[in-house]
Design a protein around this nucleic acid. Structure first.
Length: 135
DNA sequence: GCCAACGTTGGC
DNA sequence: GCCAACGTTGGC
């Protein structure tokens, strides 16, 4: 049984469009301990939703862990880690933050409760609901 | 170890 | 562009 996650990226820094060209990306630059701990729990084959923060504010597709946590080469302090993600299916329609906020079963998402957290676990139920909304 | 100052994220 | 929330830093 894979675990499920949600990861944010500002489209200005790294967008789904860019991801479609790269196919696999190093998810680096995370500088938050809580997010780091979440990334360290990720296993190859786990799945994650790709969320566009700031511009868009919507979930645009899914992706999969292809390399587990290793030291982030962009972090000179050596404290933080990154993972490698491979692009998966694009949502047929993006699921907006506004819509998530209105959904009664999605009120416990860290996306809402902890708006600054950029990498978070989600439950299998939340995963299913979000994927359905995106189909 | 406390806490004020400061920096960052991200929604609006 | 503003600002609330929250994480980090550094003086004491």
């Amino acid at each position: 049984m894979p675990s499920y996650f949600l990861m944010k990226s500002e489209p200005d820094a790294f967008s789904w469009q860019q991801f479609e060209k790269d196919r696999v990306t190093r998810w680096d630059g995370v500088r938050n301990y809580q997010a780091r701990n979440v990334m360290q729990a990720m296993r190859v084959g786990d799945e994650a939703l790709f969320y566009h923060s700031n511009e868009g504010r919507e979930i645009v597709g899914v992706m999969r862990v292809v390399r587990e946590a290793y030291p982030d080469p962009t972090d000179e302090t050596g404290k933080f880690v990154c993972v490698d993600m491979e692009i998966g299916k694009k949502f047929k329609r993006a699921v907006t933050l506004a819509e998530i906020k209105q959904h009664p079963k999605l009120q416990n998402l860290s996306l809402i409760k902890q708006s600054r957290l950029s990498v978070m676990p989600i439950t299998v139920d939340e995963w299913k609901i979000l994927c359905k909304l995106g189909s």
